[in-house]
Design a protein around this nucleic acid. Sequence first.
DNA 1: GAAAGTTATACTTACTTTGAGCATATCATT
DNA 2: AATGATATGCTCAAAGTAAGTATAACTTTC
Lengths: 339, 339
Amino acid sequence: MNARPLDRDAATHRGLGAVVIELSAAIVAVSDEAPKTLLVSPADLAPRQGLPYGPFDPAGHRTLEEGLRAWVQEQTALHLGYVEQLYTFGDRFRDPKERAGGPRPVSVGYLALVRQTALKDVGESTWGDWYRYFPWEDWRDGQPALLESLIVPQLMDWLEDAKTKPDRTRRQERINLAFGLGGSAWDNERVLDRYELLYEAGLILEASLDAGQEASPKRAAVQARAGAVLTKDHRRILATAMGRLRAKIKYRPVIFELMAPTFTLYQLQRAVEALSGARLHKQNFRRLVANEGLVVPTGHISDQTGGRPAELFSFRREVVHERPAPGVRVPVKVSKRTT
Amino acid sequence: MNARPLDRDAATHRGLGAVVIELSAAIVAVSDEAPKTLLVSPADLAPRQGLPYGPFDPAGHRTLEEGLRAWVQEQTALHLGYVEQLYTFGDRFRDPKERAGGPRPVSVGYLALVRQTALKDVGESTWGDWYRYFPWEDWRDGQPALLESLIVPQLMDWLEDAKTKPDRTRRQERINLAFGLGGSAWDNERVLDRYELLYEAGLILEASLDAGQEASPKRAAVQARAGAVLTKDHRRILATAMGRLRAKIKYRPVIFELMAPTFTLYQLQRAVEALSGARLHKQNFRRLVANEGLVVPTGHISDQTGGRPAELFSFRREVVHERPAPGVRVPVKVSKRTT
DNA sequence: GAAAGTTATACTTACTTTGAGCATATCATT
DNA sequence: AATGATATGCTCAAAGTAAGTATAACTTTC
């Protein structure tokens, strides 16, 4: 025990392999009732798209977050408001360059929220629908057909592939929990669990690419239907972002970072639905939002609706002081599930 | 715009300043009704204690978490069960070696939970009471005297030091939110907010050490009473761990990672109280725990109590499948606060 | 210009959960 | 046997929730 050198810092500095720190941003907005994320496709990522990212520069960046903001501003001309760190990934071989002798990328993922107003494509960057990359996550029109027709059967194959009995049990458990099978309910926050499970089961194209192996034609056909591919581990970061955001809107008023300064209650509901991937009970939603004191009527009226004009509301900042966990309650409308 | 080199990875590899990735673990256990954390005091950290940590080795470590587990095992002979990544910090000058030309440390903090049974000091490592480092966080015997006598007045001084009006307002807001003043309630999860505020206000010894300045004798006296010092930014990591854990016990059954295989409901309550830093309503606590199906009676009886023997329970793993967010509910007993 | 469709919002009702407390059971100690 | 400690059962009012119905205020269609 304690075979390590006494000065671990110096040891690191000299001895160990090369590492680069990448700062990546999942920049999220909601428009047209869809959650969207900003994607870039610069030459060095081709042909895959990816999140805006750049290396951390210890000389120029005082903090990691500052570095991230600088990179995003440079690459997309967007000035970020709300920014939150998500997770740091350092798994081997998530970047093809590593196999070719490149340094190990350690990527620090961030979630940033911007308003619809800022939503225009700039240069190489475009806004992509979240659900394009995670089609199984959108339950607004009931359970996505993809789940029953493709994903669950494939997961069952993966389950059968288990070498040992305990391994099989563990796989079964994970599948049940992540995908709401075997008595568990679908938890819309477990986005990352689901993605990682699909990755391990080989249904995600990135898994084959990272492994440096061509998938069989059959498998490739499956992967083609399981969401669009991104570069490196950016889809994983996006999954983390989605999961975090779905959880966070419930206990912090982050949803308002995505809304225009004034909005109707229905617009607010639509935004929450878009993020949550579920339909909400309208009357209860308004009651909850009103009771929690999250919004305040502006007295103005929207004229953009088809029917009766709706009142415009704005976010009531003071809630943050009044309640311990001021977030939007999410009264999910239960749709009958096919078990 | 887009003045960056096309291949950002190669650019990083060559051009930028040196970075090391440190993996640090806040290892938490509960015993004697106190939350404890494992601290080491190897030569290279002297005279300050610190969390177990070591550099990430891309050649040897397949993932960051694997690297962390390896380091902890080597340094403390502890085999970790539950491990969770917390946050990645990369702020400038949190390590004195950096001023002397050392590389920028980027530290990835982890939270690990171990049972009381594993709780013995090994070699250089000792278990320290959490509240030794955050004395203002323990509200089990009412509001800590320290808050009113020392911290709040000092924060008010810091408030007055604000240069501009908006800066003053911002400081006031932060103080109110973090410390439950001006109409806000004390939120036991905002551990990191409070620590960072105290750090900025100069009440934390580490702030002076990081800045490379000696504090005035008066200030030093304040710092001496505001919790014990740790090396580098380890106290910040510990704050993050505490905040995360306090939040997480409410929606994931992580508390059981800290309990022996069987326990009485009162022991469970004591553990939750220790972590939360608040007293709970006993009858309601039991009702909640029972109703949520978190525990199952073993049929055995504890003989360690003073009064009527208590029944022994064990964790019911299946809850994880039944409820969307199975955690221990925390029915805090409100003690009258002096505003 | 009346009917139909759309959207907004108010209100009802049965049911569940919570907060706070009282009461009682079962032990050790004096 | 009395006292004190802990464990556990139970009550009850207040508040909150899910799932509706009802009605209001507009646009579009015929």
